[in-house]
Design a protein around this nucleic acid. Sequence first.
RNA 1: AGAGGAGUGGCAGAGUGGUCGAUUGCGGCGGUCUUGAAAACCGUUGUACCGCGAGGUACCGGGGGUUCGAAUCCCUCCUCCUCUGCCA
Length: 425
Amino acid sequence: MLQVNFIRENFDTALEGLEKRNIQEPEKTLKEVLQIDDERKNIQLERDGLQAESNAISKEIGMLMKSGQKEKAELIKERTAAIKAQVKDLEDNYNKAELALTQLLYAIPNIPHFTVPSGRSAEDNEIMEEVGKLPSLSEGQGLPHWELIKKYDIIDFELGAKIAGAGFPVYKGKGARLQRALVNYFLDQALEMGYQEVQPPVLVNEASGYGTGQLPDKEGQMYECKGENLYLIPTAEVPITNMYRDEILQARELPIKNVGYTPCFRREAGNWGAHVRGLNRLHQFDKVEIVQITHPDHSYDTLEEMKNYVKGLLDKLELPYRVLKLCGGDMGFTSALTYDLEVYAAGQARWLEVSSVSNFETYQANRLKLRFKGEDKKTVLAHTLNGSALALPRIVAAILENRQESKGIRMPEVLVPYLGFEWID
RNA sequence: AGAGGAGUGGCAGAGUGGUCGAUUGCGGCGGUCUUGAAAACCGUUGUACCGCGAGGUACCGGGGGUUCGAAUCCCUCCUCCUCUGCCA
């Protein structure tokens, strides 16, 4: 969430940023934040003063008791009753103000970076570049992946529906092996870039959900564990970033680079439309995620580095892709700047999002209380970033669709050592 | 899952109702000494909020309670350890 002091000191910047996101009545909301915060401070001033008085009296009573002046002590005790009641009142008011403040702040999205284009929807995203040649498929070789997977019997949706539900496919044979190869390839590549591999829990508690911003606003997107107060992760970002919740790091430890493979679970309530077929949208899918924690001065360099790293993966997989800079209206709630990478899937003649690389600046760090001790010994919020590197299903879809030949589907060269075969046929 | 034990500052570990935000040791940082280092010695060393400042308030796993006063007593939840049971 945003820091109140940031809003106070940069009111116009904050307002401009929120306007870019097209949220309702941004000025009123920001003013309300400041007003509630002022209220909170005033209450604290009064409460702390009374508390100090009360502490002094207690101390006095202690000394009187020690020196045996019981009656005198009893006399003073009477004075404390009024103070106590007052403190209790102020305490209640303080808690109310603080709660109102955090709830309000939870509802305010991150301020977009100044380079983020304004816009309302995906159509307003800025296409930064397009890389690679779109495949030209010959007649009869333009099948979408949902037909190809049947043809080669490598992914079974009906079977998954039987044991779980729609959107939970079963990968079989070379389909399953392709999944495993991709995960291993992506992890190995990240290792070469200096990331530490981690295997986090795929269930997280409420505090973690709040830490990275999935709660409270996106509650409907996560699967909940009945009676356990745990959530299935929608992305490895949640557990991996939350490893650093309530931590104060040393400046020299930065940047921290972690990579993790996890399955991801998304309810996708109300997100199923006509063109959501096959692997395009699933309730469960596999993803390798890269997460970095950086010094605020370096986070945008890191964002470029991460984007370039993901581009490199797509280059090596020989998939044509384009890079988008998301507009204010399409960007995630917690992000300050997001690049989406989309691969071209020839069988559907569509671009499919396979990665989202974001800088959250201090938005998550503030919620997480993730700080570091700087060179001047001051404790300041770190910046958090993450990116998919990569999400599997749509990569699989694009590989199947773009690389289909009459003889079968030719696997990308870099995967062959991981796969142990060259063709799905 | 049952029985028992324990959670205190970066770590170790005192503290069982009153000048305790907390003795001490280690580690860290600064300094003295040294050609340099080690050792020794001296000093310093948590977080958050409020206040122009002096300073104040809160925090001893989380939450609640008793009391004029709680690290210390009570309730509750969480976590860890040991034993028993169960199980990849």
